[in-house]
């Protein structure tokens, strides 16, 4: 594995960890969503970084990451819409604590 691949992969893993941490810890819905996006970027970086090991660039992970970005954008859009609607209905940016049973 070349050194740049290692750097990309480690950065990806780091971003994943930060994102997961934020996703679990925050209760504010927008922060949760941002954390999800950071985690997603980490996974994409890992996907592109790990596949570089044979020295030349592999087109398949690039295509995968493009697809992944499209999926992440759609998911973020849906989440933003739902969160905004929730804010309008309840005036809150957090989910209620009960109903967890």
């Amino acid at each position: 594995m070349s050194s740049s691949a290692v750097i990309f992969s480690l950065a990806g893993i780091g971003l994943c960890a930060i994102g997961l941490f934020g996703f679990m810890l925050h209760t504010h819905l927008i922060r949760k969503l941002l954390a999800f996006n950071i985690m997603g970027s980490g996974v994409f970086l890992l996907l592109v970084g790990m596949a570089q090991r044979s020295g030349h660039t592999d087109p398949v992970p690039q295509a995968l990451v493009l697809t992944g970005i499209v999926v992440a954008v759609s998911a973020t859009a849906l989440a933003l819409y739902l969160i905004r609607r929730w804010l309008q209905l309840s005036g809150s940016t957090e989910l209620p604590e009960d109903d967890r049973r």
């Binding site: 996974v43 996907l47 989440a79 739902l82």
Partner: peptide
């Protein structure tokens, strides 16, 4: 709406964990 947001958060986290596995397997 609350149920949908909870479902979405769980589903997104699940999908990302799966994609992380895909990235590692491909690598």
């Amino acid at each position: 709406l609350v149920a949908a947001i909870r479902y979405l958060l769980a589903a997104l986290l699940g999908s990302l964990a799966y994609l992380l596995g895909v990235a590692l397997l491909y690598g």
